[in-house]
Design a protein around this nucleic acid. Structure first.
Lengths: 239, 239
DNA sequence: GGCTAGAATGACCAAGTGGTCATTGACCGG
DNA sequence: CCGGTCAATGACCACTTGGTCATTCTAGCC
């Protein structure tokens, strides 16, 4: 019953990057083309993705592709649109499904859902993070900023709720903390599908035990920090 | 008093990417070429950097450049070598200059020195982070892993020392925390010179007041976390 | 001067790029 | 079976890429 409006098609104001012609194609053909595009962009990044290769993989002619999407950039935008909307749906779902939980339980679920999302949509995740990380791409940085702001706004709301429920300290610097925590989550997720980011730490394709440990350590850091509060003594200086 | 082995030039075992001919050049000419290369790689990233453009900027002929560096890759390696060694020196200096300070003061200084480093070497910083973040480059990922491991080992040592001095909790998951804290620092530094990463949060080219706030918030998070410890009650929620 | 070793040069190369467009071919109403 | 419409095609375009190499230039020596 709580299926809130998942549509919320605020992307509608932007003109779709695909041409009318493309949208008249049979769904299966559209799918085939998108799939090839996702594959190509995910594995090569925007700049090194080759339209020639893509066309071969999709099994269509080059001329057709440029009838469906006027430019490489348009095609990429179309792919990003899909990736972003999937990510958005996932964020929304997680948020709505966890409203009643405690802050740190919510945070844990967000993280775990992130791993899950990557398992389900590895290529889309790759594109999403590539976009998020990439300073070198010719994308209007507004799009990147928007993605980021979305996640941070989401986290901010979580934190504010946590404060209201007295699960978190008062007087927190919410927007900055949202940024910092978001960066922690992003790094973890990125390292989850990238082999060289955390070599030897069992995050990349880690088994569930290793992931548990990561989740525990991360939550512990965010919850309590690592400083020794010297709980017995009123004097936090040397013992 | 154990002088930690710093392994100064463990890069010496690798053959220098520059040719003999290049090393015989006058320092000023070497400098000019390096400068053009740094500029080009920093602004375009590895893949989009153009040797043709570079050659024009450096004011030498294309043939010469390829006499000095056999391939584009070699030239890039040469530039990275410089960037990495500068970063390394900076890390080492910060560490050695702060051994006597408390853990969180050290951490603060590391962060502030990072900002300072970026102010001083913006282009090298860009290349360094580009390398660190880039999954798309054709660099052997070992180099990236090495850079990362260096920073994390550095942080690990700091944490261990902090634990020994009872400034930090005992029983911490040191390597994972080093990874997480490192990711926080990296994100902050990256956002410090990247306009779109933390839009509106005053980190990009922020004034010193804004930076102070960032430092404070970050350290507070790492030290105490954001969880409400419910200090009045002696009831630490069982887990 | 003449000679020569070796450094500097830029025209040139094959390969690849994103993108175009004249041609083809498939379908359809008459 | 015709003509008309329009999607599909791939040869082709101008341009860029990293890299090469025959040629030219230059410095030093006799």
């Amino acid at each position: 019953m709580k299926k809130l409006s998942l549509k919320e098609n605020n992307t509608a104001d932007l003109p779709s990057p695909a041409t009318l012609l493309f949208r008249k194609l049979s769904p299966s053909k559209q799918e085939k083309i998108f799939q090839a595009a996702v594959q190509e962009f995910a594995s090569k990044g925007y700049r090194s993705a080759s339209m020639n290769r893509l066309v071969k993989d999709a099994g269509i002619s080059k001329g057709s592709l440029f009838l469906y999407f006027r430019t490489k950039r348009d095609l990429f935008d179309g792919v990003v649109e899909i990736a972003a909307s999937k990510v958005k749906d996932y964020l929304k779902t997680v948020r709505d499904d966890t409203t009643n939980l405690l802050f740190f339980d919510r945070l844990e679920l967000i993280l775990r859902s992130g791993f899950d999302f990557i398992d389900r949509h590895p290529l889309l995740a790759r594109i999403y993070f590539h976009l998020l990380q990439s300073g070198e791409a010719p994308f209007g940085s507004e799009r990147i900023a928007m993605l980021r702001q979305q996640a941070e706004k989401f986290l901010s709301e979580l934190i504010v709720t946590g404060i209201e429920r007295e699960e978190l300290k008062t007087g927190l610097d919410v927007p900055r903390l949202a940024f910092l925590i978001n960066s922690l989550l992003e790094t973890l997720l990125r390292a989850y599908y990238t082999d060289f980011l955390a070599p030897g730490l069992g995050l990349y394709r880690g088994n569930s035990q290793q992931l548990d440990q990561w989740v525990r350590t991360t939550l512990h850091l965010v919850r309590e920090g690592i400083g020794n509060a010297a709980p017995e003594s009123e004097n936090p200086a040397k013992e």
